[in-house]
Design a protein around this nucleic acid. Structure first.
Lengths: 215, 215
DNA sequence: GTCTATATACCGATAGAC
DNA sequence: GTCTATCGGTATATAGAC
């Protein structure tokens, strides 16, 4: 045979693992969308700009994602998949959700466009008619619930100082992460001085609540 | 951070009480801009929508503010003036900056569009080429510096627990305020359940750091 | 100070060729 | 699967009448 690893150029099912080219282009478009939203927000990002970054026309993009809102949802779902894998891995190893969130902050410090995009989207999506509003409502409810539950467990294990209230700390932990992301992004825009260390800030906050140091 | 009075923004010397109508219309436009940015962000807000809310045409609006960016700057400066008056008042009465920020959170809970607009602007403006980028860089540096200094003073007065680090708490205090604003806005979009009490959350956080209850 | 009318550019989305 | 061409709409900004 001639070329060995030709992944179905015709765009047909091909039984097991078809649509390789289509899925690769979709992934490229999703990455381009994250960068564009990071720079301009959802309203400001244009399909033409995103398509150009992905190396296709904007009509070609709309073949993969029928509307701009569909594209946005694909970005959000993709992020859930990526983060979910890492968090599940940590939790499977017995790491508490709170500790896993510090790990997430560490990984985020290596993915600036993702943080930029989600920071602006979370702010935009507080308006009820934003296409990502429902997503962030669920996303935040779950994150706060998980953090709260984690603090409850730490409290039950006697690892939290007596005056610490798990019911408040869950929401405040998520709020702190969001606020630190804004400051981290701003610190990257300042040429002098080193960037904010989000994970170190979170570690400090957690240690301040623990009866014994975390590490 | 100019907390003093505006020297006639219309550009001409008001002399003996001139330009009253122009200034009133400018104020109306600024309020309309806040609402529009709150709903759509800066990129998504349109001059036609803003002008319609203020009861003029978009060309009439551009008579007062030559470009969209000029309009944005006017909004930011106006907010500095309004908040500056309240904060200066508190500080003049001997209230610490941290306590004054809790008061600000209380007032913000009665100004949803302002919080919406500034939450989305702060996120958008982390990109260096956003027209509000320079403003927020200064704004955050000042806010963090003031909060840090306030924590230093509390520490020196022996009112902070020994393990509390004033150098970290200033930035974390501002981060917490930002994150709570996002959650407060989201809580307003949920018909069930009562809204998040930002001031109560901050009071809890402060009390957790103090050797003696704050109030 | 505000308007109508317009210039110029870009938007999201569709149609149809290949 | 991707393209070119195009539709209908809206964007910021300007020109000039009143």
């Amino acid at each position: 045979m001639t070329s060995t690893s030709q992944p179905d150029p015709s765009g047909q099912p091909a039984g097991r693992g078809g649509y390789a080219k289509g899925r690769a282009k979709r992934a490229e478009v999703i990455q381009a969308t994250i960068v564009s939203i990071a720079e301009s927000g959802f309203h400001g990002a244009s399909l033409r700009d995103i398509a150009a970054r992905a190396g296709i026309s904007h009509a070609g993009l709309l073949h993969h994602f029928p509307t701009k809102a569909h594209l946005l949802m694909a970005v959000l779902e993709h992020r859930d998949d990526v983060d979910g894998v890492d968090l599940d891995e940590d939790v499977a190893q017995g790491v508490s959700f709170i500790e896993a969130m510090i790990g997430l902050a560490e990984r985020n410090a290596r993915r600036r466009p993702v943080v930029e995009a989600f920071t602006v989207l979370a702010a935009e999506a507080t308006t009820p008619d934003h296409p990502a509003h429902a997503y962030f409502k669920i996303h935040y409810n779950e994150a706060i619930a998980s953090a709260t539950q984690s603090f409850r467990e730490l409290k039950a294990a006697g690892r939290l100082r007596p005056e610490v209230d798990p019911e408040r700390e869950g929401a405040q932990w998520i709020a702190l992460m969001d606020g630190l992301q804004i400051q981290w992004l701003q610190s990257l825009a300042e040429p002098d001085g080193r960037p904010l260390d989000m994970a170190a800030e979170l570690r400090y906050r957690l240690d301040a609540m623990l009866t014994t140091p975390s590490n």
